[in-house]
Amino acid sequence: MAEKTILTLVGSLRAESVNSKFAQIAAETAPEGTTVTTFAGLEEIPFYNEDLDVEGKVPAKAAELRAAVAAADSILFVSPEYNGTMPAVLNNAIDWISRPFGQGAAVGTLAAVIGTSAGQYGGVWSHDDIRKSLKVAGATVLDDAKLAVGGSYQRFAAVEPQDDVEVVDGIRGVVATLAAAELAAAN
């Protein structure tokens, strides 16, 4: 049986972001036969511009993102909430992987969304917006594979996410659901 791959895209660019730590937990707790990697360099991709999206002009990092999404069996978005919606860096990533419309790298790719934010609901508006955009981009979004952890500043002030059993179990569950959906889709 071939190794299944999950590509994570993290919406927080801070080096020590809790969402980055969630992505690390996903990689460390992935079920046997599944590899989870994080795409590095989302901040290097210019804002989507159709004038750049022509053969010979596509920025290298945007082309790298498209290739990584196309090569992965599924994508896991790990996101905080900024001003009631998704971070611009994730919206931009979805713009690049959705083009050309109907044929982009996201088409048919399994996807799920998790994350944490300072608000009490853990970024659910952001997560809902990501799911909606991914569906428009043609991804197969697993709406039941989700985790939103609220109050991140307080919750992780004294405890690291990897030491929070509830968080680790939640992330492990989402990754296992995504991996099982990959296997089901392959058969």
Rank of each mutant, 00 (worst) to 15 (best):
T35R: 13
E3Y: 01
G104R: 02
V58A: 06
E16Q: 12
V58P: 00
V175T: 04
A15M: 07
E43Q: 13
I25P: 01
K132N: 14
K4Y: 01
V78Q: 08
L52V: 02
N49D: 15
K57P: 00
A26F: 05
V175N: 04
L178N: 00
E3N: 05
A185R: 13
L134H: 12
T29E: 04
V10E: 06
A179C: 03
V167R: 00
I97L: 07
K135D: 13
E166K: 00
Q120H: 13
V149T: 10
A23S: 13
V107C: 10
T38H: 10
I75K: 07
A176D: 05
D128G: 15
F156V: 09
A176N: 03
A181N: 01
V113A: 11
F101C: 12
G11I: 05
V18F: 09
L142G: 11
R99G: 08
R155K: 05
A26W: 07
A112P: 01
G115M: 12
H127M: 15
A184H: 08
S126G: 15
A106P: 12
L7N: 11
T177W: 04
V36M: 02
V10W: 06
S17I: 03
V124C: 13
N49I: 04
A158C: 00
L7P: 02
L134Y: 15
P80R: 10
I75C: 03
V113R: 12
P80L: 09
L142F: 10
L147R: 04
P46D: 09
T116H: 07
S133K: 14
A186Q: 11
G138Q: 14
P100V: 07
A176T: 15
E44W: 06
A15L: 08
K4S: 06
G108Y: 14
W96F: 10
K21T: 08
A111I: 06
V10R: 09
W125S: 13
K4C: 02
G122D: 00
N49F: 06
P46H: 10
F39W: 09
M86N: 07
V10D: 05
G122C: 08
A111R: 11
A15N: 08
I45A: 03
T38L: 03
